[in-house]
Amino acid sequence: MSSTGSEIAVKPQGTAQRTKTRELWRRLKKDKFAVAGGIVLLTVIILGIAAPLLTSYNPYDAVLDQRLLPPGTGGHLLGTDQMGRDLLTRLFYGARISVMVGFVAVAIALFFGIIVGLFAGYYGGLVDTIFMRGIDILMAFPYVLLAIAIIAALGPGLFQAMIAIAIVGIPYYARIVRGTVLSLREKEFVEAEKALGAGNLRIIFKHILPNTMAPIIVAATLDVGWMIIAAAGLSFLGLGAQPPTAEWGVMLSEGRNFLRVAPWVSIFPGLCIFIVVLSLNLLGDGLRDALDPRLKE
């Protein structure tokens, strides 16, 4: 149609098909803070995985005549703890556990939260009432109390702590997802799908779910940090990972008895938690912007 010429203002640019992931990556790269966060996080993960290659110490070998050495002495870069174990080594190994706990707990919480939120929001009515009242019950408890109650039922331990904080996290995702779905299901593109004959599951998973992803990914990245703190907190209270496990929360807890004479035993695990959580937050913020197609260019 000749009359369309003036309307098409967008000119073709390049023949290469830009894939969506490449596009996301390109936009994420522009955000300096997100890149920094990503690099730090990646470094921590690599350090955790490569721990045995990076240090000659064993994180569980007690050397009693080398207790509480200050950083830099006796070949210990960050000093030793109350059992004479190399602190840096324990931090490397601790990275494995702490970061893993955060991601796994968020993954579990996300999975159930998204399912509950999608179905409650899309179907509404009785489904919504039943799901959301269950969620309300979970939300009615203060989260530490709820986590402690779950651990009381399951018994203390790292795995149980992970399950506990995941359960604590479910309501938040369910609420975010449900709220987004409530507005999305009234959109005309959903109606268009119905008019085309698409089934409910196709609409839910292909059309509604991707549109809820931006807030979920942001919340999830930010929550990995929160869950790392929560897991460390439970370990600190003696409900999560148990000594002598090299876990940052446990190390923090053990070091508090020596805070006056050997502050580094607690400071370094605390710093690690801080840095990982900060980098996750920066990455989460960057992802949110990169995922929003309206902020493109």
Binding site: K187, E188, F189, E191, A192, L196, H207, N211
Partner: peptide, 24 residues
């Protein structure tokens, strides 16, 4: 049966900003 019939009847919406899935 309705699904089959939907091939024959379609709709064009008022708001072109809401009727297209922004993620596709």
């Amino acid at each position: 049966q309705m699904r089959q019939l939907r091939r024959d009847m379609q709709i064009i919406f008022q708001d072109p900003y809401a009727s297209l899935n922004p993620r596709l």
